[in-house]
Design a protein around this nucleic acid. Structure first.
Lengths: 172, 172
DNA sequence: TGGGGGTGGTTGCACACGCAATCACACCGC
DNA sequence: GCGGTGTGATTGCGTGTGCAACCACCCCCA
């Protein structure tokens, strides 16, 4: 269609075609959808092939490893890995069944549970980490210049109002 | 490769820590994951609430509408909306059951099917389009400057080697 | 003209996920 | 201390999806 050309620079919104995105917007938006789908699939397949570990499991192990005490509350973990609480419950079930993590009850709040990394889980993570990081770098990071990454990171935070990540120990 | 050379990192990190991403990389990478998850969920909920239409269905209707003859081959449609062929089959089943699209057999290739928009589907799409576009703009596009969108679009294409989108009619 | 390899689409099956209901417990006011 | 309200985690259920097997068909070549 000929209605491209969004003349006004920088300024958000002004005389736009009401019923479709112009070429530039389309590339930026659908590009992200495509990149996300392609990359997560590729990274997942890679991880699964080389370490028998789905991406979602890997992310759980990774965040547990990075957390202090190598443990996190179920809820915090759920939001961190972008999953519903129920979804995380099942995922943790599987990982516990495989011996990679364990549940600990929280002494100061009997409702709560910690997920904690087992030595086995730690080993699996160590093995997989290099693979995943190499994948993220080669498929994503390496395609951007350093300043672009800065800009990108800043932009993402602009889009997401309140996303601080400081779960905190909370439980002695 | 001929891609943009990534200048030496400006940060205080020594080359690259082998086992974790630095803050900048992390923000750029995980930011995208978060933004994607948040936005697709929000857009889907919005569409579902206001028009009773899941995002995936909307995308099918939209691409059909934009295609010439308002019809596409099942396979082309599948790749366009980023779904497996089987996934698309079921999705089209649902949409056909709801009367929004119809299957046409392809006269020149008896294996093939077209999905075509029905008048009902077209109406539903028209109703939903404004909502979705407004959502994409307000949640995503408006947070970037015009040049950023250019850069972003170009970057996405750098990441995805061969992703041209020219389905073509193919069947007279 | 007949067979073999390749392709478009559908189906069987398994599975991961979200939502809503549920349970156990914490916290607060009285 | 004792209910009422809120929260962390789990479970029942429905559903959307991918993979692999499958069928029907096209195309090519002998």
């Amino acid at each position: 269609m000929a209605t491209t050309a969004k003349p006004t620079p920088a300024g958000p919104d002004e005389g736009r075609p009401a019923d479709r995105l112009d070429e530039r917007d389309l590339r930026a938006w659908r590009g992200m959808l495509r990149v996300h789908a392609t990359l997560t699939k590729a990274l997942d397949a890679e991880l699964e092939a080389e370490h028998g570990l789905p991406l979602s499991s890997y992310e759980v192990l990774m965040h547990l490893h990075d957390a202090e005490g190598q443990r996190m509350r179920m809820s915090d973990l759920a939001t961190t890995v972008i999953l519903s609480r129920s979804g995380l419950t099942r995922l943790v079930d599987r990982l516990e069944r495989d011996g990679l993590i364990e549940r600990q009850s929280c002494p100061s709040d009997a409702r709560g549970s910690f997920a904690t990394l087992t030595p086995d889980g730690s080993r699996r993570l160590q093995a997989a980490r290099a693979t995943h990081l190499a994948g993220v770098r080669s498929l994503f990071l390496d395609h951007f210049a350093a300043e672009e990454l800065e800009v990108l990171g800043a932009a993402w935070e602009r889009l997401l109002p309140g996303v601080a990540h400081a779960p905190g120990p909370g439980c002695s």
